[in-house]
Amino acid sequence: MKKLVHSLNAAGIEIFADWLKDPKGSAPTAMLDDPSYCVEIAKEFWVDINRVFDTTFELGKYLHEEVFHNVSDPVSLDSNTGMWAWISLAFISSLLSKSSTRNNKPLDLPHYLELSGQTGRRLGYRLIARTAWKLVRLHGPLAEIALGSKKSPWGEMAEQMTSRQEIFAHPSFWAVAFRLYRGPQGELRRGATSQRPASARKDPKNNAGKGGVRRLPSTFRQFDRTYLTRAMSLEQMLQVLPKEYQRWVAQS
């Protein structure tokens, strides 16, 4: 069913937030075209609210290629928090937890709504639908490395690759991460998001957690002191990566 994209007003956002905090019964999707809870936006965009997506990457690809294509003012679209709340509600069935303990339950509030004030600005990257659209728009198929999980609409890879502004839009970072951590069948390589334990830090011979995505941003920060990394090709980046990444390069 095609619906014209709207923006949830304050009353609509409050009702949606209440449901997210205490999800009894079905999501309040009846608000999607109720003028008491939503308002029209400046331009016409249409979505098929019956679409269901196996991964957040698929949702982002749909929004970029079929809904918000040829957008002349992406900054204005990005900042329309009421519209992204509407989008979150429209596709809520694809954005719920898939874990065994919280199956079909919402994740934390910032994954669907932008909170007010400084907290909202700090956690804005977690608004799943908006970030999915932005990443596919910026990085195309490379965005799948962060958004391709079928186990959760927002996995650890998404958190690690979007929480730092210096790498969010960094083309070389995404190309390297895609090469290192994506398996031959599109799966995430085992250990890609592992954290280096405190015990391993005391033992130079212990390689646990080395070369993973948690360490890659700091490697890029160090490189930026010497190289113009945004202008480097993927092969150039792979050649200068430290030794700890070589096993990942060899497997790619």
Rank of each mutant, 00 (worst) to 15 (best):
D54H: 12
K202I: 10
L127G: 00
P197Y: 08
P217I: 02
P171Q: 08
K202W: 03
R215G: 11
L4M: 11
F16D: 03
N80C: 10
P141C: 00
Y112W: 02
V240E: 11
F168L: 15
N206T: 08
K210M: 12
Q195M: 11
L241Q: 06
L59D: 11
L228A: 15
S72P: 00
F53V: 05
I92W: 04
P23W: 01
V240S: 08
T81S: 13
G155Y: 04
A231H: 12
A90K: 01
V213M: 10
D33T: 08
K105H: 09
G209R: 08
A90H: 02
D73Q: 11
E40N: 07
T119K: 12
E244Q: 12
T119P: 00
I13F: 00
T229C: 13
N9G: 13
L115S: 09
I92L: 10
G155Q: 02
L109R: 07
L89W: 01
E187Q: 14
L59G: 10
I41K: 01
Y112V: 00
E166Y: 09
H6Y: 10
T81G: 06
I145A: 11
I167S: 04
G183R: 07
G155D: 15
E66T: 02
P35L: 04
D224P: 01
S7D: 01
A27N: 02
T226F: 12
H6A: 09
R189Y: 10
